[in-house]
């Protein structure tokens, strides 16, 4: 393991017209590590993720990413072209709703190929082969490559979105409720798939969710947020099995056991 964290987050605060979105959040993410962020609706976890991914500008704080070429750099201080380049090469963002992350009018192959073409791939045969390979890895049959996402089921759309994001071999993936809106059996398959890909590719990931089962399966470390504050963080099993903060205890005990 290297000495520098892949992502170093320092004192991120974001307010919306005086209302707190998230307050003074700091953490380090190491290569190959999966960080889960849980909390109820409105706890600031999505705000935090948007700030990290560069979709929102935080009021204060630094997000230092260990770039391939130049080592650790503050993402928020980067120029927009640099940040967007990063966003389509080393980073990936999986939206809760596949409609936000996919181009619904473009075929599955085109969706997967878009990032390749955005970084300069100009050979149709290779792009298509890569797209078909990735569809296979997310368990979509190769003969669906020319179908549009709207002909896919919800679970397939979500898997397609994941393929589209991972095709350029990113090192850091942001996921916003990747299993939201899917039924439990589809969720289970998706989680299985995600776990496999994360381990196989050595990805680091930040996963925002309100589903404790998701973090239990995927995340190495866990951060619990409430009202914009991080109330507890630690190893996933430790936090879930021995919650210290009252809110975390409530959260863990709210999960229905069947």
């Amino acid at each position: 393991m290297t000495e520098t964290p892949l992502l170093k987050v320092e004192g991120i605060t974001k307010t919306y017209a005086g209302r707190i979105g998230c307050k003074d959040v700091s953490f380090d993410l190491w290569p190959g590590e999966v960080m889960g962020i849980v909390g109820e609706s409105g706890s600031g976890k999505s705000t935090l993720l948007s700030c990290l991914a560069g979709h929102l500008a935080p009021d204060t704080g630094r997000v230092v990413f260990d770039t391939r070429a130049e080592g650790p750099r503050d993402v928020l201080a980067m120029s927009e072209p640099e940040r967007r380049m990063l966003a389509r090469t080393d980073w990936a963002f999986v939206h809760q709703n596949p409609r936000d992350g996919l181009r619904m009018g473009v075929s599955a192959g085109g969706n997967v190929g878009e990032r390749l073409m955005a970084v300069g791939a100009r050979h149709y045969g290779n792009i298509r082969a890569e797209a078909i390979d990735w569809l296979g890895r997310v368990e979509i049959a190769a003969d669906r490559v020319d179908d549009r996402p709207r002909q896919f089921s919800g679970g397939m759309q979500q898997r397609l979105q994941i393929a589209r994001n991972l095709v350029t071999g990113p090192r850091l993936v942001f996921m916003d409720e990747p299993t939201g809106g899917l039924d439990v059996s589809v969720q289970a398959r998706l989680l299985d798939l995600l776990r496999g890909l994360v381990r196989e590719m050595g990805l680091s990931a930040v996963i925002v969710t309100h589903d404790l089962a998701v973090v239990r399966l995927l995340a190495d470390r866990l951060m619990v947020m409430k009202g914009g504050d991080v109330v507890e963080q630690g190893l996933t099993d430790q936090v879930l099995d021995d919650p210290q903060h009252a809110y975390t205890q409530l959260l863990v005990s709210s999960v229905l056991q069947v």
Partner: peptide, 11 residues
């Protein structure tokens, strides 16, 4: 950022 133009040709 003109990758999208090639997506059209790909399609």
């Amino acid at each position: 950022e003109y990758g999208l133009m090639h997506v059209k040709l790909y399609e």
